[in-house]
Design a protein around this nucleic acid. Sequence first.
DNA 1: GATGAATGAGATTTCATTCAT
DNA 2: TATGAATGAAATCTCATTCAT
Lengths: 237, 237, 237, 237
Amino acid sequence: MSPAGAPVGGEKVAGGDQRLAGGDEKAATSKRRQILDAAVRVFARQGFHACRVSDIADEAGVAYGLVYHYFASKDEVLDTLFLERWQVMLELIREVDAQPISVREKFGAIASFIVDSYRHDPDLMKVIIVEVTRAANSFGQTHLAEIRTAYELIGDIVTEAQAQGYFRPEIEPRFAAMAFYGAIEQLLTGWIFGLLPAGPEHFERAKWLVVETICGGLEQAPRGGAGSERARSSGAQ
Amino acid sequence: MSPAGAPVGGEKVAGGDQRLAGGDEKAATSKRRQILDAAVRVFARQGFHACRVSDIADEAGVAYGLVYHYFASKDEVLDTLFLERWQVMLELIREVDAQPISVREKFGAIASFIVDSYRHDPDLMKVIIVEVTRAANSFGQTHLAEIRTAYELIGDIVTEAQAQGYFRPEIEPRFAAMAFYGAIEQLLTGWIFGLLPAGPEHFERAKWLVVETICGGLEQAPRGGAGSERARSSGAQ
Amino acid sequence: MSPAGAPVGGEKVAGGDQRLAGGDEKAATSKRRQILDAAVRVFARQGFHACRVSDIADEAGVAYGLVYHYFASKDEVLDTLFLERWQVMLELIREVDAQPISVREKFGAIASFIVDSYRHDPDLMKVIIVEVTRAANSFGQTHLAEIRTAYELIGDIVTEAQAQGYFRPEIEPRFAAMAFYGAIEQLLTGWIFGLLPAGPEHFERAKWLVVETICGGLEQAPRGGAGSERARSSGAQ
Amino acid sequence: MSPAGAPVGGEKVAGGDQRLAGGDEKAATSKRRQILDAAVRVFARQGFHACRVSDIADEAGVAYGLVYHYFASKDEVLDTLFLERWQVMLELIREVDAQPISVREKFGAIASFIVDSYRHDPDLMKVIIVEVTRAANSFGQTHLAEIRTAYELIGDIVTEAQAQGYFRPEIEPRFAAMAFYGAIEQLLTGWIFGLLPAGPEHFERAKWLVVETICGGLEQAPRGGAGSERARSSGAQ
DNA sequence: GATGAATGAGATTTCATTCAT
DNA sequence: TATGAATGAAATCTCATTCAT
């Protein structure tokens, strides 16, 4: 997780790869799964509004009407995709929170999970961020409860860290949680828009960066004082 | 810049309120301006895709066709709204960067401007964030250059702060800029979704919070005493 | 080929009726065919520009959207109608040209085919003449190649007749072909506008008239000489 | 007029150039005239349906509304253009018919007038042929009476020529008139579509060709008989 | 389960025409 | 006369959804 150090959670803590796979591990890709996977690609490529149901069917290689056999509407396809993934994330956050690890490690595990999710399936994360998470008038509203839950769970971690004296008490947990989550999502946005360099090493580094920034701050440790070096800036986590 | 202290930049540094007005200061609200203002309300209320051009015309109290007299398409209405505001922001960031002030003050001025923009016209900021800034397949692509410029300007501030020894050098400026901007935008998203408490005091406080979080970090400062290593960074929670 | 005599070509030479049917012979009128046939009636009645797609759908007794299921646009409906018919005509002209018959018979066969086409489906021919053949800024341009081909094929017949000494060499084939085709099309225009008497006998007579006029000329044969009857009017080229 | 012979009417008989000018000779091009002239260009370039009233105004260099100051509608602009020209043609035909000249000369004068009209203002003739003369469902119907009159006047010339023994009596005058007019119009269509070579010499030649074809026929004169020259070739070509 | 033809409401956009100045 | 902003009816085309097979 740190530039050179041990991973901040991720595989070990969060359960790793198998939960990144979305849910299609078992079935030999049923038609339903084919449709969902195709929808991810099509939504990512064209956007939810700009694509037609027939595009999904074509991409999936199935007949037009079959989409409606498995899903009540185009909306429901996106709903399904979002919920599948979001539930996994909520579960991950809950597990992380229950672990007897430092807040840095918890934040690290969350950042790691989200970044790895993007790494594993950038299209899906693109769709979730672009079409749901910020879609205040459509899917964002529909899934407000789930979205809110994620923020609250992160907020709970902050509250706990404050109670334990690790985090400064004057920054409201809800706001802190939003800053943390917003920073991560913005990194994904950067990759999605092609504004940030992508690739394995950048993804790994980003996990460390976002935790380091939010927890430790961008500023240099105070130089002066009697030996009050800020250890963090040495990267020596 | 204490929690209850002076505003983080904003008015004083950035030139303040008059540039929040968007561009309608002069004309006694021309029909064109009426349409733009109405579009903001309608886009914010229903979303760009869910509203019809007739909704804009109705909201503006003008005839249907007049929208097309002034704008080539529905898209162009949103383009105009976005660019009007974004240009002002880019200008603000450039001015801020040129000021002989600390990086905290610069970040404070930027956060202040964005939060005040939301305060002054929450609908407009909602539209920009929801319909443009993350719309990777539509308006986000169209305005990629402008969006990227903002990130780069913030990145330049980080780079400079690192060169001067205020910011830690190991965090890449581009990533740091994204984290900072993402944190702010997420706060706005929180208000837009009704997930964070709004109101004058919360807005002011948020300006401070985001700067404090990104620059200073969420972690406790080392607690005095000789050799008081910053516990947090040691992961020894 | 006397005024009241046998038809100038037509059935015998050209293969006759079956190719006048346009292409709907087989299917028990598919929906697609229903739409095309309805379009012919509507275009003929109201004109291409004055009719709406819904008029076509109504006339065909199908739902609005089905027109767009089968055709990409209103234009494509007309394109299809024109090409269906025009290809048949080009084929006819090519066949006629290949026959070992006199130029009069060839011209007769062509005139016969066009007149019979009108007889068989006046609406379709009206549409072709009114909306395509002279529409220099729209469909005429689109189908310029096909239209030109017809004129050239007729020109080839003239060229050959000149080479064989049947036609006077001083009249350029291209111009002669245009005069011939223009004369026929104008007769159809006369019927379309209700300016010429229509009906079986008039149609038959018109076939003869146009060939007689173009090949033999309107002028009286020189009265002089002993028995120097105008051989041409007997069809005895 | 004939390739080598005397002009078939044209200037001498028909009164020549001044009536080709359309009617604007006098006024120092009033705004009204500017609009009409601009409309000709725009209609010819884009077609009546494809052009907007604003295109006419722009082309004329006048304000949008001025078109409606002078004309009640877009239709009326075309009506005016057509009638201006068509009346001149009807007048010409009437004068020609009243002249004590041969039917060949009369036909020559008419062909000459129409071809010269095209030569003088191809755009106007294009508009008349493309938008009116064959527009059976719009302007063609509106101006049916005027159009019919032209055909009838030509028919009268044929009738007279038959009565005098110059034309064969078995070809109905109405049909003959249509063939003659159709042949001419088709030549213009050929030029409009770029399918026939244009230029002064071709225009002159075309006048002769069409008369020669319709009056004399395309066929070779019977070679045989003592002195059985065909009068038609009286142009001794 | 699977198919794709058929439906039709609704959206954007166009543009002739009006009218206040 | 001259201008061009303002009007709004209508047209094309889209596409989610249904349904018969």
